[in-house]
């Protein structure tokens, strides 16, 4: 990063040494904190390469003869529902993200650009959607879903995920669009560009960073969502990852390496996504949350 260039010109050696020591301690502090953040995952990874017996004898040590047998077992045994739950999670997450981003983009754009009666009312309504405690809505939603037959279907979870993911998307897009100069759209309108064309060929490319951020943050929350999955899904075949993992944990209470390999397998997609996009996520948060 360009920011990291040191500005040391014109200072005495004493000063330089002082900042050098300070810099060293800052680096050390950050290093320690970062390690504490990443250690549990590293520990989980190398423990998953041990057998149950080796792990119980020494929970801390590195595996002397690493084995992938745990991974083999959990992936080949269909009774564990690992592959099935991952497919359920992928399907639910991808469809939810598509609708969250689509609605978030269009509604956020309309609320930030077009003045009409009820604009602020709608904005407040979407904002309140962010504040309402989800757990207090579980009972009525559970009752309504069971009555209407919406519960326990392959698409069941998509409905609450879109409904509760959309408010924050609207909020972030609204803030982002407000910061973009309006001239771009005015020029397009003079050229006779339709609303839909302006929206998708001019605004969409500009708003891409915030949409990517929304997509990634929502991917984490959809993939890891627990409460709705717990209440609305009864069929084992439709269980998403968090629920399947809770069951798995109960089944193999003492076989930690096996549990850990299952955890890591089901966590892999989001962690890979995270490492691939971490810069983009943070950039998007700058754009959306603070300037908004």
């Amino acid at each position: 990063m360009a920011q990291m260039e040191k500005i040391t010109g014109g200072r005495s050696t004493g000063e330089k040494m002082k900042t050098g020591i300070l810099g060293f301690f800052l680096n050390l502090l950050m290093l320690l904190f970062s390690i504490s953040c990443i250690f549990p995952l590293v520990w989980m990874f190398y423990s998953s390469l041990k057998t149950k017996r080796v792990f119980n004898a020494d929970i801390m040590g590195l595996p002397k003869s690493p084995t992938f047998s745990n991974y083999q077992k959990i992936m080949t045994n269909a009774d564990y529902h690992i592959g099935q739950s991952m497919w359920a999670s992928v399907r639910t997450t991808v469809i939810s993200i598509f609708f969250i981003a689509l609605f978030g983009f269009i509604v956020g754009y309309i609320l930030s650009r077009i003045k009409f009666k009820g604009n602020r009312l709608l904005y407040i309504m979407f904002l309140m959607g962010m504040l309402i405690p989800v757990h207090s809505l579980l009972v009525p939603i559970y009752v309504a879903f069971n009555k209407t037959g919406l519960g326990n279907q392959w698409f069941t979870l998509i409905i609450p995920y879109v409904a509760f993911g959309m408010p924050i998307a609207v909020f972030l897009v609204e803030g982002f669009i407000k910061a973009i100069p309006v001239e771009l759209e005015e020029a397009a309108a003079i050229d006779g560009s339709s609303f839909t064309r302006t929206l998708f060929s001019i605004i969409l490319p500009v708003a891409k960073p915030i949409l990517v951020t929304i997509a990634i943050i929502q991917t984490f929350s959809c993939w890891n969502e627990f409460s709705f999955a717990l209440v609305l899904i009864k069929d084992v075949k439709l269980q998403t990852v968090p629920l399947a993992m809770t069951m798995f944990k109960g089944q193999f209470a003492s076989d930690y390496p096996k549990i850990m390999s299952a955890m890591l397998t089901t966590m892999a997609p989001v962690v890979v996504l995270y490492f691939a996009f971490s810069k983009q996520i943070i950039k998007g948060m700058v754009a959306g949350a603070v300037k908004g």
Binding site: G23, N27, I38, N224, V270, V271
Partner: peptide, 25 residues
């Protein structure tokens, strides 16, 4: 702080727990 090295790496590592599954953690 500009004296800090490996900013991107630290940032990525500190944000990582957010992406992990709560059941796993």
């Amino acid at each position: 702080n500009r004296q800090l090295r490996f900013k991107g790496l630290f940032r990525t590592m500190i944000f990582l727990p957010c992406a992990t599954s709560l059941v796993a953690y």
